[in-house]
């Protein structure tokens, strides 16, 4: 009986492990990835951190967008800005615990001054911030501050063909 329980727990752990996503580390030049390719995919990119309360409050809106447009060319990207030392101790457990489905990336640069302007020259660097891009239609929108699910939907819908 004990054996079966152990086996059951083991399988559960395995299932859980396979669900947690891998979190790639980004460098400044990697940010071009979403702006260079001439695609009609709509990238909804959010800059956040686990300790940023307004970021956490709006996380669910991005997850809802990710789910709602799962069969459309919409990709939600969550670029995390926690400290490097928190990657293992805070970010990974957070993503696993909240079971985040959107793609999470980690901004692995120590000097934000080197990359903030690459995103948007009007951005002062405050988070949360959201960047929506559709290269094929030359659409680019940047929002410093929180954004609601309705507002996101309002921006995305007209871009979908």
């Amino acid at each position: 009986m004990n054996r079966i329980i152990y086996l059951f727990v083991f399988i559960l752990c395995q299932l859980n492990l396979s669900k947690a996503q891998n979190i790639p580390r980004l460098k400044t030049n990697d940010l071009q990835y979403w702006t260079l390719q001439n695609s009609d995919t709509i990238f909804v990119i959010n800059f956040w951190a686990t300790w940023c309360k307004p970021c956490i409050s709006e996380l669910n809106s991005f997850e809802k967008i990710n789910k709602l447009y799962a069969d459309k060319k919409v990709k939600v990207i969550l670029i995390n800005n926690d400290f490097k030392k928190q990657y293992e101790t805070r970010l990974k457990p957070f993503v696993k615990e909240k079971n985040i489905k959107s793609s999470v990336f980690f901004m692995d640069e120590s000097n934000p001054n080197s990359w903030i302007d690459r995103v948007n020259t009007d951005w002062g660097g405050a988070i949360p911030a959201t960047w929506i891009i559709q290269k094929s239609s030359n659409y680019e929108k940047f929002i410093e501050g929180s954004v609601s699910f309705e507002k996101l939907k309002e921006m995305i819908d007209p871009l979908i063909k």
Binding site: C52, N113, I116, G124, A126, I127, E144
Partner: peptide, 10 residues
Amino acid sequence: QTKAIGCGIK
């Protein structure tokens, strides 16, 4: 002038 990531003012 430089930029930095920071907590948005509440």
